[in-house]
């Protein structure tokens, strides 16, 4: 779980952060303005490719993607 958290956190930083904004496992990503709703699509595709899962569009909501911890919960749901 911790390894997954770091993988996702590092992806978010590399993909979306262009200054020295600190990102923790609980940092609000969508509501905090780090990831815009347009850019969520690449995060979803990254997760699907990385973990070989399919996340239904209706589950890929801004709420479900709003922090690294929440994203891990979502991914784990489809890993099972």
């Amino acid at each position: 779980m911790d390894e997954m958290k770091d993988v996702i956190k590092n992806y978010v930083i590399k993909e979306y952060v262009e200054d020295d904004t600190d990102v923790t496992y609980d940092t609000p990503l969508i509501s905090g303005g780090i990831v815009d709703s347009f850019s969520m699509v690449s995060l979803k595709r990254f997760l699907e490719n990385k973990y070989q899962i399919a996340i239904p569009d209706d589950k890929a909501t801004p709420e479900a993607f709003d922090s690294v911890n929440k994203i891990c919960l979502l991914v784990n749901e489809y890993l099972k």
């Binding site: 262009e18 815009d36 347009f38 850019s39 699509v41 690449s42 595709r45 490719n49």
Partner: peptide, 21 residues
């Protein structure tokens, strides 16, 4: 259509996105 973005004028990032999609 699906929509994704690349960092401003960042060609490496654009290439990553072209590969992803």
């Amino acid at each position: 259509a699906m929509h994704d973005t690349f960092k401003h004028s960042d060609m490496e990032h654009l290439e990553e996105k072209l590969q992803l999609h």
